[in-house]
Design a protein around this nucleic acid. Structure first.
Lengths: 217, 217
DNA sequence: GATCTGCATTTTGTATACAAACATAAAAAA
DNA sequence: TTTTTTATGTTTGTATACAAAATGCAGATC
């Protein structure tokens, strides 16, 4: 019943939060749909108290909305909201790119280049899901190289909110090719430690993301 | 007992969250100190369940840390963390300034100028606390003119985390004068709708903030 | 047929009880 | 004296019970 909750050394709260977060991000719980407390606590094998605490955490992360006395619903983003998130995320990743060029070690850059190569492999073999997952990791890791914890945190929150939408946007073939081109430019700038170029590339990558996803929201 | 919790049309959760948030921001609950559940529950006149849900929300906002089985503590920022927050906030407010110049109406700009004038009045009369409060409002309102909800939200989170620290940093007289000069530059750029200048001014304002606060962390 | 009203059912919100983990301090051993 | 052990009280975590609110539906009314 509570099979996958058996990870040790993590509080029950954290486990419930990440379980439900995954259900939202993966689309098992559809945007706009109501959270069925009774059903989910049964499924997760926890009682209402920790489950509801987890809902509060997820609401603060922006993944769902708690409507007083009317239950919680999975948050559904309007096109305007998606645009605003991409606008901010693009700006944040621009900063991340600039800082990464200043602060990353050569080894860290090499690792990221390696990750990029692996992504290219999955692009060649049209392994969409693996590419998508590595792409999330790529953006997270690159932001990590900024060595700025607040930046990393804000990027992670926005990335989590956008995950579903980006997944949908990655499903058209021509979109994918465009994203890959963007990444090539980013990697080139990172190799040269050209902060301005990397920042600009990351920002325009997210502007392009809007073009790719806007029709599927 | 639960006197000030009597605001209508707000869920108990929201009321507890904002009450405790205020206690943290105002420094009644000191950074690093443990949250005395029993005591605060008594004080607020609520039971543990909604109180603990509120703690989860505040933890997600970054104002406190829940240590499993060891209680919650008011989050205490390291100098590095404060620097990282200011680095991000400066960058976000730079974007806000640029967007505000594009998207704000003339009336909105006039209102902000009016707020600025009022701040100057309180600067003249060395009314530090009022100035400080209006200053928070100024930054919030200016960010609001970006018309970007995600940006507004991220700015608010960071501003809440930094509130105490900025208050401390505003206590030296020469610091205050510097901040006022920054604001003059910002208002001038806003009047001209010069996005680049306003963005740069806002960013450098936050860089200067670091200089003002760094010794009092 | 459409809308309203009242009741039963379901769902949500809060309080409380119990169990588990932790902290403290006194007693025992080294 | 110092360290370890054990006992005790306190705090935290979770489950559950009860109260309040919302929802759905049947019958009444227009």
């Amino acid at each position: 019943m509570n099979t996958s909750l058996a990870i040790k050394n993590r509080s029950l709260h954290d486990q419930v939060v990440s379980r439900v977060r995954d259900l939202i991000i993966e689309g098992v719980l559809e945007p706009g749909s109501r959270i069925d407390e009774a059903h989910l606590i049964e499924e997760l094998g926890v009682s209402r108290t920790p489950f509801r605490e987890a809902l509060r955490t997820l609401a603060a992360e922006g993944l769902l909305i708690v409507r007083p006395s009317k239950g919680s619903v999975v948050r559904k983003w309007t096109p305007d909201e998606v645009y605003s998130m991409l606008e901010v995320l693009g700006h944040l990743e621009k900063l991340a790119g600039e800082l990464a060029c200043q602060r990353a070690t050569d080894a860290e850059i090499a690792e990221l280049i390696d990750l990029h190569e692996r992504m290219m492999g999955h692009y060649q073999s049209t392994d969409r899901l693996v590419y998508y997952k590595l792409n999330q990791e790529f953006h997270g890791r690159l932001t990590g190289l900024s060595k700025n914890d607040s930046l990393i945190e804000m990027q992670r929150i926005l990335q989590a909110r956008l995950k579903r939408i980006r997944y949908i946007g990655s499903q058209k073939k021509e979109n994918w090719a465009g994203a890959v081109t963007d990444h090539e430019v980013m990697i080139e700038a990172l190799k040269q430690r050209d902060g301005a170029a990397l920042g600009a590339a990351m920002q325009s990558h997210l502007v392009n993301t809007w073009d790719r996803v806007k029709d599927s929201i």
